[in-house]
Amino acid sequence: MAGEKQGWLERRLHAAALRRWSQAAAAAETTDLAELRQQRARARRLKNHIDRLIHVSESRLALPLIGNQSFPRPADADWAWRPELWCGPLPVAGVSSVQSKSMLGHEATLFHDCAHSELTLRQIRNMREADLAAFGLRMDVFQFTGSYLSLAIDLPEEAARGLKRKHLIRIDTIVEMEKPLEIFARLNIKHGPNTEQIVRELPLHEEDITVEFDLAYTKLNEKRVEKMWLDLIFEGPQMNQVILRDLTFSRRKRAEL
């Protein structure tokens, strides 16, 4: 009740202030010069705050919404997800001279075998009109002396719950890079003592990249599925900057024949 009363009072005060300034503007041609000078000083102070509010609000409201889990997905998907790195601000936004097994957030881990790391990872705010994800991931690679570089994304328990060989796992991503390279996506499914792996190359010539993993061609033990994770494997990454603007997952059942 107190909140409603305060809201009503605030609306009344705002309406009264708006009416007062409207009347002052309408009478400005005939207002006494001494009073007009005082009104101008007050109006300028007020205008500075209003201009700042408009500037900040237009900038923030134009950005993708933080925490957004909205993205195109198959109509028959029984699970869909965007990892935290692309949803909201992380406690630590970046890492330099990244060592192998370093994590950014709770779900992303970088692996490599460089003796001396010249890699950086940083979460960046997406600002393009076309972006649905609030954040992206930028990876800068300078000299690279290792034989492999991969980014592992741990999928939540919901992704593996009820998983069947009739399922298709789909990933959608948007990738920007300074110069061409190859990126492979490897889906890993741990079931009991075994791990199924399916590898697909990302079609980087497309702006919106989609890859599907068909579990029908695996030896998945449906009763022992424990967890899933995705490895993004970068081939020839040296002297390059790669930005993953978005990364989303979805799961659906294959149509029955």
Rank of each mutant, 00 (worst) to 15 (best):
L232E: 00
R224N: 12
L163H: 06
R12G: 08
E58S: 10
I198F: 04
R60E: 04
R42K: 13
R19A: 15
T173A: 13
W21G: 01
E182I: 11
G3F: 04
K164C: 12
F142Y: 07
F111H: 08
M103I: 01
D51Q: 08
F184L: 13
L187Q: 09
Q6W: 00
A130F: 05
I124Y: 00
D246C: 10
E157W: 03
R252E: 04
R161N: 06
K253F: 01
E10V: 00
Q143R: 15
Q241E: 14
E157P: 09
H116F: 11
L46E: 02
H49W: 13
A185H: 01
F71A: 09
A93Q: 13
P203E: 11
D113G: 03
I233C: 09
L168V: 12
Q69S: 10
K227T: 15
L257F: 06
P237L: 11
Q197Y: 07
L149W: 06
T109N: 01
F249E: 02
N68P: 02
H116W: 07
I183M: 13
P156I: 06
D32E: 11
M139S: 05
L13S: 12
S70V: 13
T173H: 15
A16E: 03
L85Q: 08
W229Q: 08
M127G: 07
E35N: 07
S100Y: 07
L90V: 08
A159G: 09
E158D: 14
L36V: 13
D78I: 13
